[in-house]
Write a protein that binds this DNA or RNA. Structure first.
Lengths: 184, 184
DNA sequence: TTTGTTACGGAACATATTGTTCGATAATAT
DNA sequence: ATATTATCGAACAATATGTTCCGTAACAAA
C-alpha cells in the first residue's frame, strides 16, 4: 500500500479514535474527522465510501487485533488459545482489555454507542463456541445449547460493561471470578 | 386534553410505530413520520420539541403501560406484583410481552435499535431490585450485590431478545424456566 | 533523471434533513 | 356568538452527507 494512503488512513483512524472518546458516533461529523486528521474531504471519501463504512473498517481492524487467532502481540507468538482446557481463556481476554490498547475501553463503555459492542460480540461468538465445553454443568442440560451459548456470550459482554462502567477497580482475576461464578 | 391534540399525538405515534417495524430510528425522517400521520410539520414540532423527545415520550408511554405499578389491563386490577414471593413475576412479564401490544416485540428485537432496550432495561431495573431476594443462592454470596443485580437484569433482557429473535416458539412458561435455570 | 501513474487538497456543488417562523383557517370551549 | 387554540402549508435557515473537478505533489519504474 502506498505510503500516502497508509498515512491518510492512520490519520483518519487516529482522529476518529480521539473523537470517539469524547462523543458518540452519531454526533461526530465527517468535517470533524477530516479536520482532526488534517486531510481533505475528497481524500476521506476516496478511502471510505460512507461514514458507516469508516466505522465498519475501523471496528474490523480494532477487534481483529484483540481476537487475532494467529499470534498475540507482546507475548511473542503466544496464542490466545494457548491455555485452552482451563478457564484462563477469559482471564486472558480481561487482562488484554485492561491494557486498553487504542482506547478500546472508551468505545465499549455504556455511555458510548452500542455499535462497538455489536462488533465485539460477533468476534466473541466464535471464541465462546469453541470453549463451550468448559461451561457444561447440570444446568446446561435443562436448556437448549443455542440458548446456553447465547447466555455465556451475553454474560461476558455484560460483565465487561459492568467492569468498565464501575471504574475497573477489580483485577482481571477477580472479574474473571465473578464471571465464572454466575455462569456456572 | 383537546381532542385535536389527542388525535394528532396518536396519529404520530401510530405512524412512528409502523415505520419502526420496517427500519430503525436513525433511518426514519420526520418527513416520513408526518406523512404517515398526515399532520403538518409545524404541528409535529408543536407536540415534540425534537425527534429525540418524540422517541422519549413514545417509549415512556409504551413501557409505562407494561411496567405499570398501579394496575394491569386485562386482569381487572391485578397488580404485576400480586404473586410476589414466587417466581411468577417474570412469567407474567413474558406472558404480557407475548401478547405483543403496540408491536412492542418488533421494537425489542435485535435487528431494531438499541434505544428501546435501554428504555426497557431502565424500567426493568426497579422490578428486579425489588425481587432480588428471590434469587439469593450460594453463588450470590461470592459476588457484590450490584454485580448480581446487573446480571439478573442483563440475563432477563438477553433471554427476551433470544426468545424474540428465535421466533418465540417456546411458551412463556418454558422461557421463564430457561431464564430461571441460568440465573440460579 | 525522466516519465507516467496515483493520491492529495480545496473549493464548490447538489441533496437531504432538522428545526423555525408566520399568517390564514378550522375546530373547540365558554 | 366569541375568544381561544390547534392545525396547515409553505417558506426559511442551518447543518450534514456525499460528489465533482482540477491543479499539485508524491510515488514507482524506466
Amino acid at each position: 500500500m502506498d505510503r500516502r494512503q497508509r498515512k491518510t488512513r492512520e490519520a483518519i483512524f487516529r482522529s476518529f479514535t480521539e473523537l470517539l472518546s469524547h462523543k458518540e458516533f452519531h454526533q461526530i461529523t465527517v468535517g470533524e474527522i477530516i479536520e482532526g486528521a488534517d486531510v481533505g474531504r475528497a481524500t476521506c471519501y476516496a478511502h471510505f465510501e460512507t461514514k458507516d463504512f469508516l466505522l465498519k473498517e475501523f471496528c474490523e481492524e480494532l477487534f481483529c487485533h484483540i481476537f487475532d487467532t494467529e499470534n498475540h502481540e507482546g507475548h511473542g507468538h503466544r496464542h490466545i488459545f494457548d491455555c485452552s482446557g482451563c478457564d484462563s481463556v477469559f482471564l486472558h481476554l480481561f487482562q488484554h482489555l485492561q491494557k486498553n490498547d487504542n482506547n478500546i475501553l472508551a468505545l465499549l463503555s455504556s455511555q458510548n454507542n452500542e455499535l462497538f459492542l455489536r462488533y465485539f460480540r460477533s468476534n466473541l461468538e466464535s471464541l465462546v463456541k469453541s470453549h463451550l465445553h468448559l461451561f457444561n454443568s447440570q444446568k446446561s442440560a435443562r436448556i437448549p445449547e443455542r440458548f446456553w451459548e447465547n447466555h455465556i456470550i451475553s454474560t461476558f459482554v455484560e460483565t465487561l460493561k459492568w467492569w468498565i462502567d464501575n471504574g475497573m477497580v477489580e483485577s482481571p482475576e477477580v472479574i474473571t471470578d465473578y464471571f465464572l461464578a454466575v455462569v456456572r
